[in-house]
Design a binder for these strands. Structure first.
Lengths: 212, 212
DNA sequence: GAATCTTTTGTTACTCGGTTGCATTTTCCG
DNA sequence: CGGAAAATGCAACCGAGTAACAAAAGATTC
């Protein structure tokens, strides 16, 4: 029943976890750029090449938690109840994540989460890496949309691109609200409204505003 | 009448040009990652710190031409004839750039341009830098849309994000067509159709496909 | 449980992008 | 011409990431 995978595998997972945890700990305390990978490696008592065998780049030490959300949008579309439109499922899901104060929505006032988001949105190299994760997400979502039936490949890819982009923008928008010092109780209703606005635009187009 | 700015300024501009030109030359010949900045500096007979005084990062040596297009979308919106909708102006502009085989559309079969695009779309760090240029573009476009009157700030930012994203996707789509070996005469009509499809989606929304 | 095979690790040394401090040269300007 | 200001070169440095090879540790077989 337990997923016993042998001592070796267990150790590897523990090392991986320790590296990521320690790294984030240090990053939050001293800032991403003020911590060298050598520092992280030393703190975990591991050599530098070993660290890079676990994480391909310094940025991934900070982002691999986010990587766990990989393909979430695609999953929402694939797993939606039959009869529901993809966009409706995504909209509902986003609202739910908002209510759950999911960090990926940018709207979470836990001190550590906020510090993490601040770091994320103010460190160019982290943002760049985040975009690359988003690209993969977009690809997966496009696949799920094609699977969903309507539209050709191009339409699906365009739609996926727009959707993922809007998610990123909404998260950034929410983070900005908090960064401006607003309380989460104050910002949450607005965040819901923003999300609805965004999904209205996605669904009905920019036409009403910019095409006539 | 001439923009005589003194010997100093002229020399600086020439050095800058020489650096960019030589760098692109070398990048196209041997590949971006196989050329070190030291190589470029040596070829131009300039020291490494001097090179970095002209270009903040290696990627900018390759991309600063593209940077000249900075704010193009915003300009199209600002300069549109009165009475024309922003989205209509952007659509028309994109079609025009397509017909002009503008490299930024991805649809250009000149050997050097193709080589450059191949490099651009297959080198992660270049793509990452391109995204950062796009961010600036997006910001400017959002400003222009606010200026254009309709819609609040959030709507403008969302719209700008979607538009810039779609442009990137279309360019990538076009590049892919050529990369698959298709002739430009063959791909051009399809590119126009793709652009119309994309702008239809932007204007009328994903609704018809994914929201009901 | 020893012998062996395989995977993981550490060490050392390296490449490359980018920066710093300082002395030197070059342009500008009175 | 002479000196202030700007641009350059030099040398040394930092940090991310990699290569080579030897050492260690887990897995496997008898």
């Amino acid at each position: 029943m337990t997923d016993e995978q042998g001592l070796r595998e267990r150790k590897k997972q523990r090392t991986r976890q320790a590296l990521s945890d320690t790294a984030i700990e240090l990053f939050l305390r001293r800032g991403f750029e003020k911590v060298s990978v050598a520092d992280v490696a030393a703190a975990v008592e591991v050599s530098k090449p070993t660290l890079f065998r676990y994480f391909p780049a310094k940025e991934d030490l900070a982002l691999h938690r986010i990587a766990d959300h990989q393909g979430e949008a695609a999953r929402v579309v694939s797993d939606r109840v039959s009869g529901q439109a993809p966009l409706a499922a995504l909209r509902a899901h986003f609202h739910a994540r908002l209510d759950a104060h999911d960090p990926i929505t940018g709207l979470n006032d836990d001190a550590r989460v906020r510090a993490f988001n601040d770091m994320l949105y103010t460190t160019p190299s982290l943002l760049a890496r985040l975009v690359r994760y988003s690209d993969r997400d977009e690809e997966l979502l496009a696949g799920a949309l094609v699977e969903a039936g309507d539209g050709d490949g191009l339409t699906a890819r365009l739609a996926a691109a727009q959707i993922i982009t809007v998610h990123r923008r909404l998260a950034e928008e929410n983070w900005r609200k908090l960064a401006e010092g607003r309380a989460i109780a104050d910002a949450l209703p607005e965040a819901h409204a923003d999300a609805d606005r965004a999904y209205d635009l996605l669904g009905a187009g920019l036409g009403a505003e910019y095409d006539r």
